[in-house]
Amino acid sequence: MSHPGRARSVRFMAAIFNLNHHAGYVHWHFFQMSWPNLIVIITMLVVFALAIALPFPRSHQPAEEQP
């Protein structure tokens, strides 16, 4: 059953980047992964590395000085 104005409404909410097409895949021997999943996993690793490597802004009120 079609809903009046539905097409316009859904199009209005449509994405800026259309991902409704087949993904690309990385295929190596038994390893097969879609680029979207691979990007998520690589981003996780990068964010983890950055979280450890980037300096954390120190509070203006430093901790007690160690003697």
């Binding site: 991902l19 097409h21 087949h22 993904a23 690309g24 879609s34 979207p36 999943n37 990007i39 998520v40």
Partner: peptide, 8 residues
């Protein structure tokens, strides 16, 4: 995997 090019 997810349908389309979305992460799953």
């Amino acid at each position: 995997n997810e349908t389309g090019s979305f992460p799953g």
